[in-house]
Structure formats: C-alpha cells, structure tokens
C-alpha cells in the first residue's frame, strides 16, 4: 500500500492510508492529547480535546483521516489553550471531587489536567445535580463523574449486539443511561472491562477501588502520553 506523507508540527511523517491523524502522530512519536478516544474502538469524536489544525482548519485528530501533503499543527499556544479549556469545562460540568474517587491516579481526565498544569478551571463550577446509581449487582454508575465520552456505549454490548449503556436526553441534560436488565446479566469480565474502559471514575466495579497505593498508580509519576513521546 502506498505511503502517505504529511507533516506534523513541522516534522515530516509517513502514514498508512486509512489511518487517522492521531494514529499517524502516535506512530511518529508525537502525542496528541485525547480523551474519548480508545484504541480499538470506533472514535466518537466527542471530547474534542484532540483538536488540531489541518491545513489551517480545526479538526479532531482522532476522526480525521490522513491525506497526502496535509500540514498538521498540534501544539500551537492557541490549540493548547483550547484543549485545556475543554478539560476545564469537563471539571466544572460534572462534579469531580478527586480525593474520594476510586479512579484517582488512573483517571485520564485528571491525567490530562495534570499534564496541562491545571490549578483551577477558568469556568465557574456548575454544581449539576446528578446521581449515583447501583445498576447491577456488579456495577455502580457515578453520574457525577461521567464525561459522556461514549466509550461504554460503543464497547459494552450483549452477545447479540444490544447496547447496555445508551445516551439519553440531549443538551446539558444528556446522561448515559444503563439498561438495568442487561447490566444485571453482564458477566464478570465484561463488567470489569466496563470499569476499565471508562476513562474516569463513572463506571465502578463494586468492592474494588483504592487497590493501588498512591505513588504507584498509572499517572502518579509520569504524564499521560509520555509513553508515546519517549518511543
């Protein structure tokens, strides 16, 4: 298959047809911050944190396919500020009290905020009223922390393809609903996968949490994306 040539942040890169800009960048050791994206899942393009400029126009790197000759900018001060603003929006939209979260230290939202050096969001807290739901004998849904990335919607299905998690309502009222019957029927592996796939502490497998001591969690020592950058 023909190779595609493009430049990312001034660096000449090659990519395979069908790859996204995010994938091409990663293969070239360039980390584009991303949140809703999850390797192997159809990207939802919902968080927009991977926004880059492609030939001067904004596009989400996780959904935008590569093409010959593209000039991609990923790290201009303007883009970095916007990316950070999106992370900050998520922190004020939901209720993210990290000290009491099972996912703290392993949370991708928090990790991005750390990477961006967020000390306080620029936006006022919204104190939205959300609930905590026991959705099955195995799973808890902590809606306060859900960032509506839709990974669970896409990934967690019954063997016959029905969705266990589904987006409901719209606008700021959007929430991820859980089908109680289907959730109750989830086997242990799928339930654990649901917790693992959730970037934040919204899907919780009951009776686990805080298992890894502070200091040894995924993002305690090195920033999210550093594995890509040091390759």
């Amino acid at each position: 298959m023909a190779e595609i040539k493009l430049t990312i942040d001034g660096k000449p890169c090659t990519a395979r047809p069908g790859q996204t800009i995010l994938e091409a960048a990663k293969a070239s050791g360039i980390y584009i911050p991303a949140l809703c994206h999850y390797e192997g899942l159809k990207p939802s393009g919902s968080c927009r944190i991977c926004t880059v400029k492609v030939n001067g126009r904004p596009a989400a790197a996780c959904t935008q396919p590569v093409a010959e000759g593209l000039v991609v900018e990923t790290a201009t001060p303007e883009l970095e500020d916007m990316r950070r603003a999106l992370v900050e929006m998520l922190f004020v939209e939901g209720n993210h009290f990290c000290p009491s979260c099972e996912k703290s230290g392993n949370c991708e939202l928090q990790a991005l905020a750390y990477r961006f050096g967020m000390l306080v969001p620029r936006f006022p807290y919204q104190w939205s009223v959300r609930e905590i739901e026991s959705v099955s004998p195995r799973l808890l849904m902590e809606h306060n922390r859900c960032i509506q990335c839709r990974r669970c919607v896409e990934a967690i299905r019954t063997p016959d393809g029905r969705r266990v998690f589904a987006a409901q309502e719209r606008s700021g009222r959007l929430r991820i609903g859980v089908d109680p019957e289907l959730a109750a029927g989830l086997d242990e592996d799928t339930a654990r996968k649901a917790m693992a796939i959730c970037p934040v502490g919204a899907i919780l497998y009951k009776e686990v949490g805080f298992a890894v001591p502070i200091g040894r969690r995924k993002y305690d020592r090195s920033p999210i994306g550093s594995d890509i950058e040091t390759k």
Partner: peptide, 21 residues
C-alpha cells in the same frame, strides 16, 4: 442553542451553557 445542542461534544454541550451564564 443550549436547549438544541445534541449534547454529543463537550464544547457545544458544556460551553454554550457557560457562555449563557
């Protein structure tokens, strides 16, 4: 716009509310 956002993406779903406030 706040009411009619489909809610899929963060800037539109959360950002418009913040702009309105």
């Amino acid at each position: 716009f706040v009411e009619e956002s489909c809610g899929w993406c963060v800037p539109c779903r959360a950002g418009n509310v913040l702009l309105l406030r």
